[in-house]
Amino acid sequence: MRVNESKLDRALREAFAGTDAERRVVVRQAMDLADSGQVTRDRGVALTVDEVVRNLADAPDESVANRWNWWMGALEVAYGGYAAFQVRRYEKEK
């Protein structure tokens, strides 16, 4: 089952601080992660909007991109293979 992109974008905007550019890149990375099926294989749970928001809520209180990277770092340590899904850069808004 594919993560609903617009629902994820809306949920991230409502739940966490960060710019539109940060949120867009996190959504893109989440979609790629969902398409890979890696989370389901490693953790036995589908990647859903609720799953993303719940895990990002556990991160230190920072922007959405930092929260995403924190979660991807935790998954990298636990399972390996998640570094490719981290946010490396995004266009700064003016």
Rank of each mutant, 00 (worst) to 15 (best):
V77Q: 15
V27P: 14
S63H: 03
V25C: 05
D32P: 00
S6W: 07
V26W: 07
D20N: 07
S6G: 13
R43V: 15
V87T: 05
A34T: 00
E91F: 04
A34H: 14
A84H: 02
R24P: 06
W68N: 07
D50F: 00
V45Y: 14
A84T: 09
D42K: 12
E5G: 12
A21H: 11
D50I: 00
K94W: 08
W71T: 11
D32Y: 00
R28G: 07
D58Q: 14
L47K: 01
E5P: 12
V77C: 07
T40H: 13
W68M: 03
F85P: 04
A17V: 09
V39S: 05
V53S: 07
V64Q: 08
A46I: 01
G18V: 02
E22Y: 01
V64E: 10
V87Q: 01
R67H: 06
L47D: 04
D35E: 11
D58I: 02
R10Y: 09
E22A: 08
R23C: 03
A65G: 06
N55T: 13
Y79A: 11
W68R: 02
F16I: 07
L75F: 03
A78M: 13
R13H: 13
V64D: 13
M1V: 10
A34K: 10
D9W: 04
V64L: 03
M31P: 00
M31Q: 12
M72D: 05
N55A: 13
E62N: 11
G44P: 06
D42M: 08
V45E: 14
R54I: 00
E62R: 13
G80L: 10
S63Y: 07
L75D: 02
Y82F: 08
N4W: 06
L75S: 07
T19G: 08
R28H: 03
A78R: 15
K94F: 05
G81E: 12
F16C: 08
F16R: 12
R88F: 05
M72W: 01
V39I: 15
A59Y: 04
G80C: 08
L8P: 06
V53Q: 11
V52K: 06
N66C: 04
Q38N: 02
T19N: 06
L33C: 05
L56S: 14
R24G: 09
S36T: 03
W70G: 10
L33M: 12
Q38C: 00
D58K: 13
E76N: 03
D50H: 02
M1D: 05
A34M: 11
D61T: 01
Y79R: 04
Y90Q: 03
S36N: 04
Q86S: 10
A46H: 11
G81D: 08
G81L: 07
S6E: 15
V53T: 07
D58W: 02
Q29V: 06
G80S: 14
M72I: 03
P60K: 14
R2W: 12
E91K: 15
S6I: 07
F16L: 10
R67C: 09
N4C: 12
N55L: 09
D20I: 00
R89V: 03
V45C: 13
